[in-house]
């Protein structure tokens, strides 16, 4: 799976460079997020701008990361969702669970707030 990771100011930006997240690569994504969290990176921003298609297993992988981040008093927030990818979150009501930002700047600003307060929102 093609993923780039940038660390800055205690935050980790994860850019998924895959057109599809499905049952072929979702387990790899889940494990990748888990390892970041285990390595102490607790403020994760996942950029989905390159992702054109996501299935139920892809949603499950992101949900796993979200839950594991929360367990560690961290956060996993999403940005860059294409409209049809966003509609999959809406269909499954997961748009009420995840914090979703339309731009990376907004996501970084939100992450800064979380960082400053050191708190988990949910």
């Amino acid at each position: 799976m093609n993923i780039t990771v940038e660390n800055a100011d205690n935050k980790t930006l994860i850019s998924l460079k895959e057109e599809r997240i499905d049952a072929h690569n979702s387990l790899e994504l889940k494990d990748f997020l888990q390892k970041l969290l285990e390595n102490g990176q607790h403020l994760l921003i996942v950029d989905l701008a390159a992702v054109r298609f996501i299935d139920s297993s892809g949603l499950g992988a992101l949900l796993s990361g979200y839950k594991n981040a929360n367990l560690r008093q961290g956060s996993l927030i999403l940005t860059g969702l294409q409209p049809r990818v966003h509609s999959m979150f809406e269909l499954t009501r997961l748009h009420r669970v995840f914090e979703i930002y339309s731009s990376l700047d907004e996501a970084l600003a939100a992450s800064r707030e979380v960082n400053a307060h050191g708190a988990n929102r949910h």
Binding site: D55, S56, L59, A61, L63, Y66, K67, L91, T92, R93
Partner: peptide, 15 residues
């Protein structure tokens, strides 16, 4: 699926 439960599986047949 129970939307109040954050299960990682169980949305495929729902779709």
């Amino acid at each position: 699926p129970d939307f109040d439960q954050l299960d990682e599986r169980g949305r495929g047949i729902f779709f």
